[in-house]
């Protein structure tokens, strides 16, 4: 099928939109003092922030997979009002302002909160710990995984799972041997998006976890802090965050393409 061509004038707003999105990032790359870029990045606080971000984002992405995958599979098979409510809840953190997410976590899991105070009695004190950072990141990142995987499962037209079931495979076998391998590209791209979102998490961490070098001060919090005293260093770290984001989005896009060609 050959689609009719787009009207040519559409190119104008499209170019403007591209420039609108690209110019601020390019301006940042231009402003960075490249001659001492490395020196700015290798301060202990920057290095600590980098490793902390890497550790917490890996942990929260794994949590997203462990908890989000089952949720996505259940949602993809569910209909009716309850499923709609579940779907709304699963996507809500995506659109919440980060500070609101932080406040919500605080009133639920804070030391004075109902759940938080009970957790403390059990010896689990989240306040100002790296665990609190992981909780905040998982809260805001999980929707990205759930939405990506649920979407892929819904549009999947293959009947391999039906065939497997008629051949006598148990539901668990079908899940491990058929459904999960077929959904792998969507799971991977959803995980990459979740990782990217966790990496950018700022408001909830700041409100809920605090900011201490090596413990809770992730890359975005480090940028926020050093911006007060050293704009150059803040820009250098920001460029690193942009670079990581570019890689993650590229990976997601590549996975999307391979998914597309396989089908």
């Amino acid at each position: 099928m050959i689609r009719p061509p787009l009207p040519r004038w559409l190119a104008v707003p499209a170019v403007v939109a591209t420039a609108f999105l690209a110019v601020p990032l390019l301006a940042m790359v231009v402003r960075v003092p490249w001659s001492w870029f490395l020196a700015l990045l290798t301060t202990t606080s920057a290095v600590d922030a980098f490793w902390l971000s890497l550790r917490t984002c890996t942990a929260s992405t794994l949590l997203c997979l462990v908890l989000g995958l089952p949720l996505a599979m259940v949602l993809a098979r569910s209909h009716g009002r309850l499923a709609t409510v579940g779907r709304v809840l699963a996507t809500l953190p995506m659109v919440l302002p980060p500070v609101v997410a932080g406040l919500a976590l605080l009133v639920a899991l804070g030391r004075r909160a109902w759940l938080g105070s009970r957790l403390s009695l059990l010896g689990v004190d989240l306040a100002f710990t790296t665990g609190a950072v992981v909780v905040a990141q998982t809260f805001v990142a999980m929707p990205y995984l759930v939405v990506a995987v649920e979407g892929a499962l819904r549009v999947a037209q293959d009947d391999f799972d039906v065939v497997a079931a008629t051949l006598g495979a148990s539901p668990t076998t079908v899940l491990w041997r058929v459904t999960l391998p077929l959904t792998a590209p969507a799971i991977a791209s959803g995980a990459a998006l979740a990782f990217a979102r966790a990496l950018g998490e700022f408001g909830a961490t700041l409100t809920f976890a605090g900011s201490l070098q090596g413990t809770t001060r992730t890359l975005p919090l480090e940028v926020y802090l050093i911006r007060e005293s050293d704009t150059d260093a803040a820009l250098a770290l920001s460029v690193v965050l942009v670079a990581v984001a570019v890689v993650l989005v590229a990976v997601t896009a590549a996975l999307g393409r391979s998914w597309g060609t396989r089908r």
Partner: peptide, 15 residues
Amino acid sequence: APVSEETKVTDVRAK
């Protein structure tokens, strides 16, 4: 030996 070093004094107060 603080558990958190905030960027804004109002964040200290809020905590």
